[in-house]
C-alpha cells in the first residue's frame, strides 16, 4: 500500500488536495465578500470591520497562513495539471469539439489554469494596494485609532484602470468558480445521480452571486464618483 504522503502525490491525491483547498478558498471568498459589504453600512462600519480583523492578532496570522497554503497548493497543483495536459498530448487535434450531453467541457473548465493565474497575479497587486497600503489614521466610533481603509477603497475605485481591471478579474473568478465549485465536490468523491446536478446548479448560482457582489462595489463607486447614496463617505 502507498504511504499517505505518496497517495497525496498521486493523481487522485492531487485532486483531493485541489478540492479541499478549493473549498477553503470558496469559504474565504464568501467571508471576504461579506466583509466588503460593510462598505454599505454607516460611515465607519468598514473601518471598524478591518480594525477588528487586524486586532485579532495571532489568530489572524494563523488564518492567513492557512489561507496562503490553500492558495499556493491550489495554484501549484493547478499549474502542474496544465503542464501535464500539454505533455500528455504532444500532438493536438486539428479539430476538437465537445459532444455536449453530460459534459462540462467549456471554455471556463478548460481555462482554469489561465483564469487561476490571472487571479493569482491580481492577488499580489490587490494585497499591495489594499492590505499593505499606506493609510491615514482615523478615530473610530469606539475611540480607538484605526487605518482609514475606506478612503483607500473609495479613491482606488475612482481610478478607471483599477475599477475595470478589478471587475475584469472578478468576472474571471466567476468563471473559475462555475467549474470549480462542482469540481471540488466531485474531486472529494461526492458524485451522485441526483445531487451532483444540484451541486452544479448551486455552483453556477454561487459563481454569479459572487461575481455580482464583488463587481457591484468598484463599478458603483466608479460611476457615482464616490458620491453614491448607498455608500456613506
Amino acid at each position: 500500500m502507498p504511504s499517505f504522503l505518496t497517495a497525496l502525490k498521486s493523481q487522485v491525491g492531487r485532486k483531493i488536495l485541489t478540492g479541499i483547498t478549493g473549498i477553503g478558498l470558496i469559504i474565504f471568498v464568501i467571508l471576504h465578500l461579506a466583509g466588503n459589504l460593510t462598505l454599505f453600512g454607516d460611515y465607519q462600519a468598514f473601518n471598524v470591520y478591518t480594525y477588528t480583523l487586524e486586532s485579532l492578532g495571532w489568530i489572524l496570522y494563523i488564518l492567513e497562513a492557512g489561507l496562503a497554503i490553500c492558495f499556493l497548493l491550489h495554484a501549484y497543483i493547478g499549474i502542474s495539471i496544465w503542464w501535464n495536459r500539454r505533455k500528455n498530448r504532444p500532438e493536438g487535434y486539428e479539430k476538437y469539439q465537445t459532444k455536449g450531453g453530460p459534459s462540462h467541457n467549456t471554455w471556463a473548465s478548460r481555462s482554469m489554469a489561465l483564469t487561476g493565474v490571472v487571479i493569482l497575479v491580481f492577488l499580489v497587486i490587490h494585497l499591495a494596494n489594499f492590505k499593505f497600503a499606506d493609510t491615514n489614521m482615523i478615530t473610530l466610533p469606539n475611540g480607538e485609532t484605526g487605518r482609514n481603509l475606506k478612503a483607500v477603497v473609495m479613491e482606488s475605485f475612482q481610478n478607471p484602470w483599477y475599477a475595470f481591471g478589478y471587475s475584469f478579474v472578478l468576472v474571471l473568478l466567476g468563471l473559475h468558480l462555475k467549474h470549480g465549485f462542482w469540481s471540488a465536490f466531485t474531486s472529494l468523491t461526492m458524485k451522485h445521480k441526483k445531487y451532483s446536478a444540484i451541486i452544479y446548479g448551486i455552483g453556477i448560482i454561487f459563481a454569479i452571486l459572487i461575481a455580482i457582489g464583488f463587481l457591484f462595489i468598484p463599478l458603483y463607486i466608479y460611476f457615482t464618483g464616490g458620491q453614491g447614496a448607498l455608500i456613506a463617505y
Binding site: G101, S103, R110, K191
Partner: peptide, 26 residues
Amino acid sequence: GDCSNFAECEAVCPKGISISAIAEMR
C-alpha cells in the same frame, strides 16, 4: 493525464458510463 472533472469522457463513451466510477476510484 489528471482528471479535471470535465465529464467529456462520459459524453463520448459509447456505453454511456458515468464519471461516478471516477469518484468511486478516488
